[in-house]
Design a protein around this nucleic acid. Structure first.
Lengths: 202, 202
DNA sequence: ACGAAAACCTAGTGGTTAATCGCTTTTCCT
DNA sequence: AGGAAAAGCGATTAACCACTAGGTTTTCGT
């Protein structure tokens, strides 16, 4: 066996290599945005050449797609999507805020920077964010509607508005939190928003 | 006189030239962000060479400062800052949303993209946004506190939270509005947020 | 009418970028 | 053990970037 014990310089076990790149991609795209984040820096973080990185993702856009997919995979787990949406779905948004603030500040940054950037119609992630917002707002509209049917929504509260605003509030708080993490508790602010709308504790 | 009547190619009247550049800067930085927006594109929009542009602003950061200054100049006019902050200050935020949606979509885009980008501590506009948020949130805290003192705030509403959340909501709605302008009315959503907190109509 | 200052341009500098090409090394399957 | 596929690298390319140098044209105060 040519490989002499200490396999310095050997290629990684190929299992988590792609994953490693995506993790680094999250960090870099979060820090500098997509257009300004460089493949070189991502490659550097995983200890690989830029050309080597492009063996796993044939171009930058494809890497972005992978990054977004991985991002979703994580946060969505906290919002129950099985069964009919309801109060637990709403609480899920609060849970995501809690989780992000404590364990995933990188994801918060990524979401803020990319969602703003992808506002431009020609951005490679434009469609993704369009779809994503329609989906999540739609899910929350369903949730609020069902909560209303269960008599847990105060009179005069429009499910569609509450849904939109809950998501908007969550997004807006993230910017302020990124600028000054100690100045506010995102989850607590979300609960304070929800309390005057519900007859049950969020 | 070599110049034959029609002064084609003559230099502009120098009065509004700087302003023209800033207007173009708003558009370009709004579309591509600061780091990815190019001086070349800005120069092109005002019909000038990139070098000519840098005669007015000695570097890109200085241009950004000018753009942000111009942006402030406009929106702030709708929020009364003279006298003691109160219900009219809060209504000012709603007015800004109304104004932006109808007349200044470019400013909305600029704010969203840059505030997210400037979240990174090394961004040239980081301090600007830090200061700006402290100022505007502080102003709104004062406003809500005075509204509370006037008995116009419902029990259990924390002025500091309401202030923060109003700003956050405004920011978050902008992202959704940029993605789908016809899907929501920012000002109306802000009013819907305020109504359950106040004893007077926002 | 004239000279200085302001406005602007062409041409370039050094740097960074995503992506490609041809090649070597490692891993894996049989 | 052997061969194919996967993983990785160094060098290169073409495009773009902010910014500079040096010269030309326009404007303006007197």
């Amino acid at each position: 066996m040519a490989m002499t014990g200490k396999s310095r310089g050997s290629y990684a076990k190929t299992a988590g290599r792609r994953r490693e790149i995506l993790e680094a991609g999250i960090e870099v795209f979060a820090n500098h945005g997509f257009r300004n984040g460089s493949l070189r820096e991502i490659a550097e973080r995983v200890g690989m050449s830029q050309a080597g990185l492009l063996h796993h993702f044939s171009n930058k856009n494809e890497l972005l797609a992978g990054v977004l997919e991985l991002r979703d995979e994580r946060s969505v787990a906290l919002v129950p999507i099985d069964g009919t949406p309801g109060i637990e779905t709403i609480r899920g948004i609060v849970r995501v805020a809690e989780y992000n603030a404590s364990f995933a500040p990188g994801l918060v940054e990524l979401h803020c920077v990319l969602s703003a950037e992808a506002t431009a119609p020609e951005h490679p992630a434009h469609q993704y964010f369009l779809d994503r917002y329609t989906w999540v707002v739609g899910l929350m509209v369903e949730a609020f509607t069902n909560v209303q049917a269960a008599g847990q929504l105060l009179d005069g509260v429009e499910p569609a508005s509450a849904a939109r605003s809950l998501i908007a509030l969550s997004d807006g708080l993230q910017v302020q939190w990124l600028l000054a993490p100690d100045a506010l508790d995102m989850a607590e602010e979300l609960r304070r928003y929800l309390r005057p709308l519900l007859t049950v504790e969020p």
